[in-house]
Design a protein around this nucleic acid. Sequence first.
RNA 1: GGGCGCAUAGCUCAGCUGGUUAGAGCACCAGCCUUACAAGCUGGGGGUCUCAAGUUCGACUCUUGAUGCGCCCACCA
Length: 876
Amino acid sequence: METKYNHNLYEKKWWDFWLQQGYFAADSSSTKDPYVILMPPPNVTDRLHMGHGLNNTVQDIFIRWQRMLGKEVCWLPGTDHAGIATQMMVEKSLQAEGRSRQELGREQFIARCWQWQEKHGNIIISQLQRLGASADWQRLAFTMSPSLSKAVREVFVRLFDKGLIYRGKRLVNWDCALQTAVSDDEVFNREETGKLWSIAYPLVDRQSEQDELVVATTRPETMFGDTAVAVNPNDQRYRQYIGKKVLLPLVNRELPVIADSYVKSEFGTGCLKITPAHDFNDFDIGQRHQLPALNIFDDAGLLADCVPPKFQGMTRSAARQAVLRALRELNLLRGETKHRHTLPYSDRSKELIEPRLSQQWFLRMQPLVAEAIRVAKDGELRFYPDSWQKTYLHWLENIQDWCISRQLWWGHRIPVWYCQTCQQHFAATSDPSACKHCGSKTMQQDDDVLDTWFSSWLWSFSTLGFPDHNEQDLRKFYPSQVLITGADIIFLWVARMVIAGIEVLGKPPFKDVYFNSIICDHQGRKFSKTLGNGIDPLEVIDQYGADAVRFTCVSLAPLGGRARMGKQDFANGAKFVNKLWNAARFLLAQPAPQPLPSLADTQPTVPEQWLLNSFADTVMAVDKHLQAYRVDSMADALYRFIWGTYCDWGVEIAKTMLQTTNQIPASMYYIMDGLLRLVHPVMPFISEEIWQRLPAHPDWDRPSSLVVAKFPQADVLPRYDSKALASWEMTRALITAIRTLRSRATIPPQEQIEVSIAAKRLVADEQRWLHELAGVAQVIWLTADDPKPTPALVQVGAGFEVYTTTVRIDVGREKDKLRNDQQRLTALLSKVNAKLNNPAFCANAPAQVLEEHTQRRQLLQSQLHSVEVNLQALGS
RNA sequence: GGGCGCAUAGCUCAGCUGGUUAGAGCACCAGCCUUACAAGCUGGGGGUCUCAAGUUCGACUCUUGAUGCGCCCACCA
């Protein structure tokens, strides 16, 4: 074995082996209990980033763990057709050829999309495989595949026939760059400093020049769409004008002055221009007052033909400047002030959203959410961390209708047909040959496609054969156990999946929802392309190996928080992987007992018993942490045991045994075998490589791969309990204390020393460890009456004092250290004394606490005494 | 405006239902190539747990408030 673990030699080898053995395939005819995780489908356009890396590592940990526990696991992978993102990519490539999608036509364009997705899509899938993701890749699903498309149509038609899907002319969030509507959940807000302009609208039939209403607006360019001016009905200033008319400048259209309590008198001028087609509040007011709504922007967000010719075709920002200039010329601009407000932007294009009146399809959500709310409240659906429950409930309880149509070409075309003969429309699961209502053959399908999320929200069952009941899959694998994803899509995907699962199959699609950490740099900033602060997972996998990357990600990811990571963290992960490698290298380089005996046939020494107990504790901890979705704590437990216990103590102990018996004890092989099983979910490659080289231990099963080996179970692991074990703890404490003394006295490692110990005497067998592990040639055991050696160095600990007279020290530094000790111990002692002298404490504290404090006082007193004696001996 | 969360060592974090001398990794300092690993070994220094008040015999832990930071939702002519 090489001294440094080289991941390049093993990762591909084992990956190919696992795939070839078919370990990851989920069999719905199995009699084993199912354990299912749905992989959140990445966009086909995606490249692997650290968020995917963490998310899929966590999923893989649970999947591998449950597989080793004997479940029939199904980790269902797939990709999302990402309507907008893909269409943007393909349009860009067309642009490079100097062509446009309009030129190409719908059919040709869609063909291009398919070509593109075959060529460039699914790169992310091979990237996920580099990570070691043990999903059932044969089940790879795609939201545009024929079977998933079938599910989309089926559900659409069901909801349509229930009357939950309707078409309406409503105000929607319009993305002018992509020229499509987007849903509320695809809009983000940004606070900015803008301006608030005051514009005079002269009164029709005015008595004087001053007879005008001054409106305040942040968007003068929308004035072409004004259809009223509103004031608050209780505003004394404007009461007289209600019911009168003003003249819209630049257009010279008459607008009614209306009263609406929405208008705040104290804001701006107290006069509000009403533009129903381009503002959500104005739209509501317009509805209340039956005002016409005038759409003034075309699909691209340019001013349309309904505005005065000189403004036509202008962009929104150009129009704003032009309008202001024109108003200034007419002397109608009454002022401008700075104004802080938040503006809506599109998630996808990052363009300013234009609220715009248009014909869209909507899904009535309100009738669908009751059960989704109930299951969360009753704990049938749990969130980790549970604080997300509130966010989830708040959204559902204030649910808005979902705008599901998009003016794109790439996606599921809305399965609604309009009959040119009878003018009616209807929805159908398969392309109809005749109108459902009149039998006419002249029909046209709706031009729009569905929101991408309308296919993703069916993911939990559309991937399992619905609606073609390959019932076995659906019955066996629905619902899944846990959804592992990012909290940023709690509304877009998680909550909607719950709704869909309940609506279509009668129960929620998963029991637990685990939200991963957000990946940030060390300054707490999200990884982002523009900042360039991200770490490319593939780059670090190349450099450090998949196991190191997996372990690092997971150990830095607290439940629900933000995981801060830098490149150095991955180097540390790699060190840990290498540590395990070398622990195994040591073991495998030594002669093992042949054949390895079962633990029951050997008599483990006390230190071995301690190691075995510690291993069992670790198994228990790992189980506990995984149950609680605390992968970071699991990583910590593994790290502590492997580095701090197995290597630091176990290997050192084994070395001394090697000297006397010429063999490593069987328990070390036993522990290593169990350990590899334990780490396999998080470090699958290195654990497999070592395990395959490890001689089979009779106490463990021995299948062809660790992937399908049994996971350690704490309740069947050997446990030891004896007085000797308690004494071993004292031995370890003494060893550490003596090492400290040696370090303080600058005694080289090779030099054997003599120490005096005031403590309960160790038996000869235990005392030998002081020799082996602390370089002690001889021990003088002091009783309470013996004088303490002087001059000497002392190290005090819980229940013992160790002295050495081998002194080669810096007296000044040593004195400082002792004074420090003295100060520390004095402070502690006075704290304990204060408590014990407090009658209220003695009266109220439980007996055990009281007893502990009394003992601590004694111990501190004796330790303080020792330090003082020593200090004197050094001559102060 | 509403909601959620966080504040512990230089950095990243752990610390369960209040009760041993508040822990770990990284970084730092000292000494070691001790025959698995220098990507290593053995030690060491470093925190009055953001602040204030309260409850309690006892508060890092519970309550209230303040300050700072992060996130989400709604909305502002």
